[in-house]
């Protein structure tokens, strides 16, 4: 079976790097992006099984990613992470059909569990 493909978007390199390393240990295929623009471009040509994205980014932000993903691939789960955790953004994100929402720093173990859950919910 092919590996699940996970996309990680964050404008800080360390987030992508750490996520990539830990998720690859779980056997996923991970691609990381430093901007929403680059991620959207890639999304148009390639479907991912789960998208993990930062909420606040310059330019294309996490909400826009979420919207696009849902348009292109309604069944793909989006996990939102953000440094600016507050209730409003969380509620907005959840309304937008986000699979999970984590404030940063996010515990790697919890992220892994969340991804596993997202994948098992998929048909």
């Amino acid at each position: 079976m092919d590996k699940y493909k996970i996309m990680v978007i964050d404008d800080e390199k360390i987030v992508g790097d750490m996520a990539k390393l830990s998720l690859e240990q779980e056997g996923y295929d991970v691609e990381t992006f430093l901007s929403g623009e680059a991620a959207l471009e890639r999304l148009r040509e390639q479907k991912f099984d789960v998208v993990v994205t930062d909420l606040k980014m310059k330019g294309v932000d996490g909400m826009e990613i979420l919207k696009t993903v849902k348009q292109l691939y309604p069944d793909v789960k989006v996990i939102m992470i953000t440094a600016f955790a507050n209730l409003d953004t969380a509620i907005e994100a959840l309304r937008g059909d986000v699979h999970d929402f984590f404030p940063k720093p996010v515990k790697i173990k919890e992220l892994k569990t969340s991804i596993k859950r997202a994948l098992s919910n998929q048909v």
């Binding site: 964050d10 800080e12 360390i14 987030v15 440094a83 600016f84 940063k104």
Partner: peptide, 13 residues
């Protein structure tokens, strides 16, 4: 704890 390798963190933290 947060920088110990079990968390994904960013500079804002």
């Amino acid at each position: 704890d947060k920088l110990g390798g079990d968390y994904i963190f960013d500079i804002t933290y």
